[in-house]
């Protein structure tokens, strides 16, 4: 599903962020990427969503070779990936329903199709009854669930979650992780980038540990070891 071969990223010869990363993630896996700040986790996410290009190496995501992807093709790639960030990135002047449908609107999906797709997705994340509310009227956990719903509307094969629980308390963290597990059970590959030791240890799934831009461990049913 996702493969990186000899991927390095440096901004200047001295500022090396990722060094010779070799990694394969199969379809349907739930993989956690852990590491301290500055380990290169966010850069890895940026490479996978084609926000940045690798300095060396090759990156494949599904059938897409995104190593040197053209900017005109990037939007089509991003419709295949669900992305969740710590800071939610919700539009404050749009309701829950509108925020979720926004992802379909920009892709040119018809209004009829949007009305068919959005309600079931809101149901999955448990926000059917709050479709008309604005982000400011929701808790942090609920806002993150809106983001998850938005990332799901394109029915992506991969969801990349960069610190999705970073701003949440333990109860909301559990809720969000449960939803991600549920989505994973439907066959969607999940790449979870996190600092949260409890989450990683509780998941007991594959854990990739980054340190100084390199993979220092890659364990099935691993634990947060740093």
């Amino acid at each position: 599903m996702i493969s990186l071969h000899g991927v390095s990223k440096f901004y200047t010869p001295e500022a090396v962020v990722l060094k010779d990363i070799n990694l394969t993630i199969n379809a349907g896996e739930f993989v956690s990427v852990v590491g301290q700040s500055g380990a290169g986790k966010t850069t890895l996410v940026k490479l996978l969503i084609a926000e940045e290009k690798p300095t060396r190496g090759k990156i494949k995501l599904g059938d897409w070779d995104i190593t040197n992807i053209r900017s005109s093709v990037v939007p089509f790639l991003r419709r295949q990936i669900g992305v969740i960030f710590q800071d939610f990135k919700l539009l404050p002047k749009k309701t829950v329903f509108e925020n979720v449908s926004f992802a379909l609107e920009v892709a040119g999906v018809s209004a009829l199709r949007i009305r068919q797709v959005v309600p079931p997705v809101l149901n999955i994340v448990g926000l059917s009854d709050k479709a008309g509310r604005y982000p400011t009227e929701l808790s942090g956990g609920e806002q993150q669930r809106v983001v998850i719903a938005r990332s799901l509307v394109h029915r992506p094969k991969v969801i990349i979650a960069d610190e999705p629980t970073g701003n949440l308390d333990s109860i909301n963290t559990t809720d969000v992780i449960q939803i991600l597990k549920k989505i994973n059970e439907f066959g969607t590959t999940i790449l979870l980038v996190t600092h949260n030791r409890e989450v990683v240890n509780h998941l007991r799934r594959r854990v990739i540990t980054l340190a100084d831009g390199q993979i220092v461990s890659d364990e099935e049913a691993g634990k947060y070891v740093i």
């Binding site: 005109s72 939007p75 790639l77 990135k89 539009l91 926004f102 938005r150």
Partner: peptide, 16 residues
């Protein structure tokens, strides 16, 4: 800026 970054994130084309 936020709206534009979200548009990019969810796959809006440059044209859009």
């Amino acid at each position: 800026r936020i709206e534009i970054s979200i548009k990019r994130l969810v796959g809006a084309s440059n044209w859009f």
